[in-house]
């Protein structure tokens, strides 16, 4: 299992579009993805789960990937956050 901590930096936070993008990307991999914020843990491949977090700019998230391609998965997801989901 691999783990990575990231901070949400895009202005509008994890609203519908970024959440959809995140879930879509995660679904391209075979590994599991869990996202933890405070005391809530959601499945990173479920759109309703990710949106439940309502993560805003400045929120800190822990990404946990588990499976054969966990490294690539984390790398790709981290890239999305770094690029602010191509938003601002």
């Amino acid at each position: 299992m691999q783990q990575k901590e990231i901070t949400v930096t895009n202005k509008l936070g994890l609203h519908a579009r970024p959440s959809a993008l995140l879930v879509k990307t995660a679904n391209n991999f075979r590994s599991e993805l869990h996202i933890i914020m405070d005391d809530v843990e959601v499945n990173g491949k479920s759109i309703m789960g990710v949106m439940t977090l309502a993560a805003a700019r400045g929120s800190r998230l822990v990404l946990q990937a588990d499976g054969v391609d966990e490294d690539y998965l984390l790398e790709e997801i981290a890239k999305l956050f770094e690029s602010n989901f191509s938003e601002d």
Binding site: L12, G13, L14, H15, A16, A54, A55, R57, G58, S59
Partner: peptide, 21 residues
């Protein structure tokens, strides 16, 4: 429904973001 849901989500994110500051 999709619009209503995302509107609520945005409001919640806004509240969250005030807490983050």
């Amino acid at each position: 429904a999709a619009e209503a849901y995302t509107r609520r989500l945005k409001e919640e994110i806004k509240r969250q973001s005030r807490r983050n500051r």
